[in-house]
Amino acid sequence: MICASIDKCLHGADGEFRLGAELEVAEGEFVALYGPSGVGKTTLLRCLAGLEQPERGLITVNGESWLDTAQGINLAPQLRRVGYMFQDYALFPNMTVRGNLEFALRPDANKKRVSELLDLMELGALQQRKPETLSGGQKQRVALARALASEPRMLLLDEPLSALDAEIRVRLQDEILRLQKHFGITAIIVSHDVGEVYKLAQRVMVMEAGTIVRQGTPTAVFCGGQTSGKFAFTGHILEIEAMDVLFSLTVLVGSQIVRVVASRDEVQQLQQGDRVMLVSKAFNPMVLKLAD
């Protein structure tokens, strides 16, 4: 169980604001911090890792105090044993793939752990390569393996997949989920991708201007109350065109462009660029198998 309460002054694009967040994460849970950029998600994660210190705060992990500003306790990041994945991978350029993993080992660790992780993530063929020769997806897989090599007690993922293209992102999400289950490790991911949050997290905390404004299961949080439609996607409106008594909406859902028909009262409150949810009954879609 992780209990944290963080109070820190942040300098955002629109001036100063307070990061005032309280969160509880159960052992083995996968939680997402969701929200637009610049609301303090990454800072909150960095405070958990000890890379930044809040003015006031309290962090206890399984009863052990990591931070208690009132008592003057602030455990160094070196002693917190967290696995951290950075948006820019942060692989050590001077070390090979294997070298990166070996460097991450704890002093008392069995060297075999490196080989096991390389096998588990199918990185064996790349182990003698230097990071600069790897693709973005490969780099982030190495970064994930490295984070796990240090036998962390929790995994902190700071928008690890945002620099990757959609297809590789989906594959890495599978990978992260698989390893998180394999090790039964508590994980907190910072993300602004609804699809990613849906896929990975059991619980999502929505952050706005430094505070957690909503939390719950991704379905409860993103479907705004509860709607029985099963076929639901969020996207951005690219274009609204009138056709007869109806309107045609062109919507970007993920990397796909779809067109849907909407009535006048639906369109009245919409404009280009708005975020919308497209909901249909699970009965409607026809399913066609694609040739391989």
Binding site: G50, Q78, R80, Y84, A90, R146, S150
Partner: peptide
């Protein structure tokens, strides 16, 4: 930062 969270002095 990465080296710090990996426990390095």
């Amino acid at each position: 930062d990465a080296a710090r969270v990996l426990g390095k002095s």
